[in-house]
Design a protein around this nucleic acid. Structure first.
Lengths: 148, 148
DNA sequence: TCCTTATAGTTCGATATCGAATTAAAATCA
DNA sequence: TGATTTTAATTCGATATCGAACTATAAGGA
């Protein structure tokens, strides 16, 4: 009675567990009040060099719904991490940008994440990583295409 | 400005995205009121042939905290999917078991999940799956050991 | 035995997330 | 132009999740 189901089910099970472990580990080192969701937003802006994006674009980038984005951005705005203003070219939309405090917060988060990241890197062989990444990118691309 | 960070960071990013896509896809086909968390509990009991387990054991099995288990089990009990009784051998503990309705619900969920699972299976090559599974199991085991 | 520590479960307050419904504005089309 | 449809954002209610604090019971040690 230990049938783990079809391989594709096992795949998602393993991914869910790894995700759970990783998220928990990372969340535990973030500065008080910061969350992975909020760090992800900050990192997205800085990493990709985006000056500003709409909530809808963020929702699309992270594959989450717009209500979720509204909720997280509201908290980030209150914390002074992002600025939100109306889009002058579209009365429905808003434009989000990261504040100086947001940039600084991202850097602090990166410092804190460095430890757990190094720990994980240390136990995972370079070879495993090199094999895994392209495979996962392929899976993600295919699942993404499926979502229509 | 499109540095995705170190490979190990990219790994967790890909996993988070795939997890997000998979969870969303699966959740959308579950019967009204059912959730992945609740299905996971039902599936755990039936699949492993456990007659009964304590909330603490469930928390450990799923790598979630006890408050989370309390919360989810309370809803499942109200829905009649599980039965919860005091552990006669330990005054602190409780024993959880799946009801007949719970077993039936699990089967219904499995039917509903079959579609999305087949879709995913169809786009992922057998080869990719065969390569990925052992690698991910290895990663999971190593991260699990790290969590101490 | 009595005190201390560890464990099981709960309660509380917070964040992230969703689907459904709502409002407002843009885009399409007849 | 005027009506319809689409899109952006929000609000609402719900679930899952966590950490911190709490209660109760069990286990260990002096």
């Amino acid at each position: 009675m230990s049938n783990k189901g079809p391989p594709v089910f096992q795949l998602f099970t393993e991914i869910a567990i790894i995700n759970q472990l990783a998220q928990a580990g990372f969340a535990s080192v973030l500065p008080k009040g910061m969350t992975i969701a909020q760090f992800t937003v900050l990192n997205h802006f800085v990493r990709l060099g985006h000056d500003q994006q709409s909530p809808a674009q963020l929702a699309s980038a992270f594959q989450i719904t717009r209500p979720t984005v509204t909720s997280t951005l509201a908290r980030m705005e209150k914390a002074g991490l992002v600025a939100i203003r109306p889009d002058p070219e579209d009365g429905r939309a808003k434009l989000v940008s990261v504040t100086a405090a947001g940039v600084k917060m991202r850097e602090l988060c990166l410092q804190r994440l460095a430890g757990p990241l190094a720990d994980a890197d240390a136990v995972l062989s370079r070879e495993t990583l090199a094999q895994l990444l392209p495979l996962l990118q392929d899976v993600r691309a295919k699942l993404d295409r499926l979502r229509d």
